[in-house]
Amino acid sequence: MKILAHIVRFLVGGIFIFSGLVKLNDPVGTQIKLEEYFEVFAADMPVMHDFWMSLVPFALYFSVLMCAAEVILGVALIVSWRLKQVSWVLLLLVVFFTFLTFYSAYYNKVTDCGCFGDFLKLKPWTSFTKDIVLLVLILFIIWQRKVFRNLRTGSLVAFSAIFSVALAFYAIRYLPPIDFLPYKIGNNIPQLMQPSEPLRYKYIMEKDGKTEEFEKFPSDTTYKYKEMVLINENAKPKITDYKVWNNDGDFTQETFKGKKLIIIIKNGTDLNGASLAEIRSLINSVKGSGVEPLILTSDSDAEIQEIRKAYLLDVPYYFADGTVLKTISRSNPGIWLLEDGTVKGKWHYNTTPDKENVLSKL
């Protein structure tokens, strides 16, 4: 039992450290998930609508605090630092996560909880099951905590706290050190919009009270159709919602032709206007070099025209879904470089490149 308790302690600690680090790599992604939860709760609990919406502006702070706590608590658990307090805090944290994943699964809301960031996508009921297992393991640790020897290793816990905050700060100020998103450098967007292999389905049919599966739709008309299930789930397109348009129609395929320097302006609400002077200089410098600059936005036509006029951005603009733009770029504005549909560069507005840097990527 003592050996099992130590194994469980290391396992739970390792899971929390891994989960926290993956999310600290991209705290803005967790911020987006928290905003989704706040908006869902505001819609589902109208009596508390104003309360939930008041939390939205603080979602990034909650994201950093929660993700850093996972790492710090995981380290504290592994090094046996203040186990009594740490184990109870872990229990409260897992109860909170279990509630969120159950809510997502049962009500089919926020169907990706972001438990492991964009590194590993879990289905809602899988996430809920994972949290139930963690809940049981933490209760086991609390039950067996007397077998663990408390160590004076506060310096390691303090270092984990400093490292966690530093990693989050870097990812927010620049971009995630490791990009797990489908729009990362090296990916070909048109290819990811297609299945990696022909999709195969099985048909669930019923006859005389018995259920049978067929890989081809049966010609026997006495069978009653129940559902169609995809067999090779992993072959589905990794990108399904990328679409670009303007007032004249669809422009999606045009973004895959030639060299495109795309300025992502998600919205004017939290736009860092001070960075647009440098971006404007970049846009003007690449004109005539074979690189076509353009703007992608989820703002309205009137709003983006006002932004272009205010910041002297003399480039065409097109529209895209706001969620897609958040996935492409974690900064607002952001810079995205495509060549024949392949991502050649991504920059935060704090690291706006010059013309030579852009051309060197092509």
Rank of each mutant, 00 (worst) to 15 (best):
S155F: 13
H49V: 01
G334D: 08
V315F: 00
K109P: 00
H6S: 13
F41Q: 00
V75N: 06
I141E: 14
L77H: 10
L135N: 14
R82W: 13
Y174Q: 13
T342G: 12
A161W: 05
K2H: 10
F99P: 00
A158G: 14
I283H: 00
F119C: 03
N188W: 08
F214V: 11
E306I: 01
I72A: 04
A5P: 05
Y107F: 06
K355G: 01
K287T: 02
L296I: 03
Q191E: 14
L100S: 01
S87D: 07
A68Y: 05
P190L: 11
L296Y: 05
V110Q: 01
M205R: 09
S63E: 14
G249C: 12
V40H: 01
N187G: 09
M53F: 08
L175A: 12
M66E: 14
F102V: 04
H348A: 15
L77F: 11
T98R: 04
N246G: 05
K207L: 05
K33N: 11
D314R: 10
V133F: 15
Y203E: 03
L156T: 09
L73P: 02
M205C: 11
Y170T: 11
I72D: 08
E212M: 14
I172D: 02
T126C: 00
E356D: 14
M193T: 09
K355R: 05
C115E: 00
L137H: 02
P353V: 03
R145N: 15
R200N: 14
Y106R: 00
I204A: 05
F119N: 00
K121I: 15
C67W: 06
